[in-house]
Write a protein that binds this DNA or RNA. Structure first.
Lengths: 336, 336
DNA sequence: CTGAAAGCGCTTACAG
DNA sequence: CTGAAAGCGCTTACAG
């Protein structure tokens, strides 16, 4: 590597100006076809690398979109991310991924980094406790924000997610129809809109069925496979033990089923279990998991394309966009 | 947002030069303490946002490290990524994540993007078929590359990974000790070093035990939970069916166990199963999965810190660094 | 301890 | 269709 080749290197080699070279490389019709071909050939031959920092400094567009979620390893987010990636790829946007693990400080530092890099937009599953002001900071600095999975009260940012309360209502109603009257809700927390809304759906379905809710049925907290597994012993010690368990997510349900099996109980036979999300694994689990499809693909696609549209100049449309959930009945809620 | 505030905005407000402001914000001892405080206060009050593109253009350091793996949703990579993230965070490097899904074109376009953004380094689990020249392109353009999980023949880049052949040998030897003589190897492909090395370990252990390998025992291909699940019917149709199955990864093993259970067979009782990686889920699976701990945390930590050291000026040390695997005996290989 | 000036590598009006 | 020049917002020698 003798010298770094830049626009001016190519320009000099060809006896042209950097303006012409710049235009040609970006396929401007202003440049004559033959010139353009010569320039492109020279760029290729010389191993030219486009310097996006320089371009971005000049244009104040970076082609970068930041995406920050609780945990990218969670298949629920993973499935959303694939859809986002696909959509962003189509529009030649680079996306920068980050976990915030529900730590506000980590999320803030991510937003900061995106601001410093001059990112064009942000897709966020907001960390627990995110104040609207954190999102406004971004908007104020010309960094539009789109929310996924969760929403933030008072923030102008549009939110794309499944209809959590309706979805959970479906799951509970399904269990009621199977004859269950003692139904627990395992996992999730008051601290997120998801947790609150799913709990609301659960309570509504119970009320609708004329079942009086008992506080010990609500085992709040678990949101991972492991914590779902760990919730089992406590559940089994419940006096007048529920016959059915609605889990906050598939991950929690899958862990809970592992836990039940470990304790010698057969999910779907001894205890009915439902999940939420319908991740890929749900269908092959043992037993196959009854769950609520949460539209991950739609969430990702719509969020990304709303952002892309906004970058193109179209202002955001509606505030919140809810994707209709769909109940997937399999065997974990009762073997046939 | 009236006007964007930049260094010169602060400098003017305070009657100083941009040089002083720049120095002060980066805590240079060249600037008097009082001046520094005044500058920092003004920066905060005015909502100043550091423009990293401009700085990076000038210094040709970007503070960005690119990380590209087959699939970030795979918990094996997820666990590596967490370690990388932790290490990089400590050194205030932003990391940009990407899936290449074993598509060379996608990996190439990622390397290209990193080059254009002026990334400081690259951590790569190379896509199947990666030619050494792709990595050299990066190195030539001052983008040092570190490999994880897999290696690339002929590339100068150091590679951090578990000792695949030794690990698989451990698993097979364990099954042999339990009395198995017909042992299948499910998943993985010749196309990756991981696949080749693990197969080599498997063959070595068979040979060592005086067992003659039969081609139908090698069910190549599966590398996901789903494909592990799908491999079961074919396996069950094998005449003179193996009594034990070594799986290429935990994910494959977990899917395979789902498949066995679906077919009414009890993993660990009717068929012994082992995994590879010891991901978080292995210990709570039903039955708990016997597997080979593959040192994800170490891989991530060492890869990241080798890269950071290199950025600091220390050239790479050895070529390949192998982490010693460890057999974790649980119940899937035979209930006690 | 602080300032004036050049330059990183692009793109964008503006001229011709 | 092509070129000369300014400027994006920093940092880095160099002076003083």
């Amino acid at each position: 590597m003798a010298q770094k080749v830049k626009l001016s290197t190519i320009a000099e080699a060809l006896g042209l100006s950097t303006a012409t070279v710049s235009l040609a490389l970006r396929d401007s019709p202003l440049v004559a076809e033959v010139t353009r071909e010569r320039i492109k050939a020279e760029a290729l031959a010389s191993g030219y690398i486009y310097n996006r920092r320089a371009a971005s400094l000049r244009t104040s567009k970076s082609g970068i979109v930041g995406v920050c979620v609780h945990d990218i390893m969670n298949p629920f987010f993973g499935e959303i991310l694939i859809a986002i990636e696909h959509e962003l790829d189509r529009h030649r946007q680079t996306f920068i991924l980050c976990n915030h693990y529900d730590a506000l400080a980590k999320q803030r530092s991510f937003i900061d980094t995106m601001l410093q890099l001059g990112a064009d937009g942000l897709i966020l599953s907001p960390a627990i406790g995110t104040p609207a002001s954190d999102l406004e900071l971004a908007e104020t600095n010309e960094l539009p924000v789109v929310l996924i999975a969760r929403t933030v009260e008072g923030a102008g940012a549009p939110s794309f997610r499944g209809d959590d309360s309706v979805g959970m209502e479906m799951a509970v109603r399904h269990l009621v129809e199977l004859g269950h009257r003692r139904i627990a809700l395992v996992g999730g927390t008051e601290a997120t809109s998801t947790g609150r809304l799913r709990e609301a759906g659960y309570l509504r379905a119970l009320a609708e069925a004329g079942i009086e809710f008992r506080p010990e049925w609500r085992i709040a907290g678990p949101r991972s496979r492991h914590s779902g597994f760990d919730a089992v012993p406590g559940f089994l010690r419940l006096s007048d033990r529920p016959t059915a368990v609605c889990c906050f997510s598939d991950l929690v349900a899958l862990g809970f089923m592992y836990g039940l099996a470990r304790a010698g109980l057969r999910p779907g036979r001894d205890i009915a279990v439902t999940g939420y999300d319908d991740i890929d694994e749900a269908a092959i689990a043992v037993p196959p998991l009854t769950t609520v499809a949460n539209g991950q693909k739609e969430v990702g696609r719509r969020a990304a394309s709303a952002l892309v549209a906004r970058l193109g100049g179209t202002p955001f449309a509606a505030a919140d966009e809810l994707i209709l959930p769909e109940l997937k009945i399999r065997n974990s809620s009762g073997l046939d």
